[in-house]
Amino acid sequence: MAELVLEFTLNGQPTSCRVPGEARLLDVLRGPCRCTGVKEGCGEGECGACTVLLDGQPVNACLVPAFQVAGRSVETVEALRCDRDPDPELLNRSGVAQCGACTPGVVMMIRWLRRNPHLAAGADLRQLLAGNLCRCTGYDGIVSGAAAALKQAGGQHSDT
């Protein structure tokens, strides 16, 4: 297929775009969908900066082929403009963000953890967040921000 017409749900909205057949989800999001909040840090699935939620589960957008996204649901950091979940002011006070390059990916992991609190309860937060490389914070700010966000009430809960 030279080009692909991709229809999927993006941050709750039905979306349709034309993309090259070999596009990755990351290219679709940063390109025609204008979600430049999703960052490319390595293209290898190592750094996690491109983490988005696909049908509610965290994935590296650089490793998802666009042709597998049809009919599915994608959430990016841009969703926070509407629902502030997790609360960016709380995360900011905790020191989650320094340079911000890894930050959107981290935020999406925290969003996912808030919806699945049983996961954080049963496992080590550092291990759950180990797929998000950060060079600035040394991870303490990220872990304490995640812990604080998990204690905060509100937000969406799903059965995913």
Binding site: V38, T76, P88, E89, A97, C99, G100, V107
Partner: peptide, 14 residues
């Protein structure tokens, strides 16, 4: 951090 929320919401433009 003054530029923090923009970074946390993906608004900051690199």
């Amino acid at each position: 951090r003054i530029d923090g929320v923009d970074k946390l919401t993906g608004v900051a433009r690199y």
